Simulated assay, not measured.
Amino acid sequence: GLTPVVTSKPGHVVTLRRVEFIAAGSVVDAAALHALRTAGIGSGKAYGCGLLLALEVRS
């Protein structure tokens, strides 16, 4: 698994447990995919987590 991210904010320490998901699917809304790739996913974005990578696969 991925190592946790540990950082501090004023008054407390924040520990984020990270996970990696790998999936396959079909894009039905290209604009929504673009928005997710631009903004990231999840509450850990402020700590460098939430990256979404998407690769085109042609058969």
Results as ranks from 00 to 15, higher is better:
Ala32Lys: 15
Val27Trp: 03
Tyr47His: 08
Glu20Thr: 13
Tyr47Gly: 01
Gly50Gln: 02
Leu33Asp: 06
Ala32Asn: 14
Ala31Phe: 00
Ser59His: 08
Ala46Leu: 10
Arg18Thr: 13
Ile22His: 12
Ala32Pro: 03
Val57Trp: 01
Ala24Ile: 11
His34Ile: 02
Val6Asp: 01
Gly42Val: 07
Thr7Arg: 10
Gly1Asp: 07
His12Val: 05
Ala24Lys: 14
Leu36Tyr: 06
Gly48Arg: 03
Ala24Met: 12
Ala31Arg: 12
Arg18Asp: 06
Gly50Leu: 01
Gly25Trp: 07
His12Ile: 03
Lys45Asn: 08
Phe21Tyr: 11
Ala24Gln: 12
Ile41Thr: 08
Leu16Met: 14
Leu2Gly: 00
Glu20Leu: 13
Ser8Asp: 09
Arg17Asn: 13
Val27Pro: 01
Val27Asn: 09
Thr3Leu: 12
Ser26Tyr: 05
Val6Tyr: 00
Leu36Cys: 06
Ala39Thr: 11
Val28Ala: 09
His12Asn: 09
Gly11Arg: 04
Arg17Pro: 01
Glu20Pro: 00
Thr7Phe: 05
Arg58Cys: 05
Val28Asp: 06
Ile22Phe: 06
Ser43Pro: 01
Gly25Met: 06
Arg58Trp: 06
Ala39Val: 03
Cys49Glu: 01
Ala24Pro: 00
Ala30Val: 11
Val5Cys: 06
Ala35His: 12
Ala24Glu: 10
Glu20Ile: 06
Glu20Lys: 12
Val28Trp: 04
Gly11Thr: 10
Ile22Val: 15
Lys9Ile: 15
Leu16Arg: 03
Leu16Tyr: 14
Val14Ser: 02
Ile22Trp: 03
Leu2Ala: 14
Gly11His: 13
Val6Arg: 10
Ser43Asp: 05
Leu2Val: 15
Lys9Cys: 09
Ala35Trp: 10
Gly25Tyr: 02
Arg37Gln: 14
Ala31Pro: 01
Gly1Ser: 12
Lys9Asp: 13
Gly48Gln: 09
Val14Pro: 00
Thr15Tyr: 02
Leu53His: 08
Ala31Asn: 10
His12Cys: 09
Val57Gly: 00
Leu2Phe: 13
Arg17Val: 10
Leu33Tyr: 04
Ser43Ala: 14
Ile41Trp: 13
Tyr47Thr: 04
Ala30Asp: 15
Asp29Lys: 02
Gly48Ala: 05
Gly25Glu: 12
Cys49Ser: 15
Val5Leu: 12
Gly25Thr: 05
Leu55Val: 07
Thr3Gly: 07
Glu56Phe: 01
Glu56Tyr: 00
Pro4Arg: 11
Val27Leu: 07
Thr15Leu: 08
Ser26Asn: 13
Val57Arg: 03
Gly40Trp: 00
Ala46Arg: 13
Ala31Trp: 02
Ala32Glu: 15
Val5Ser: 05
Leu52Lys: 06
Gly1Cys: 06
Ala24Asp: 04
Ala24Val: 12
Ala24Cys: 04
Tyr47Leu: 07
Glu56Thr: 09
Val27Gln: 03
Gly42Tyr: 04
Ala46His: 08
Lys45Thr: 14
Ile22Met: 10
His12Thr: 11
Val19Lys: 01
Pro4Cys: 04
Val13Ala: 10
Lys45Pro: 00
Gly1Pro: 04
Pro10Asp: 15
Ala23Glu: 04
Thr3Ser: 09
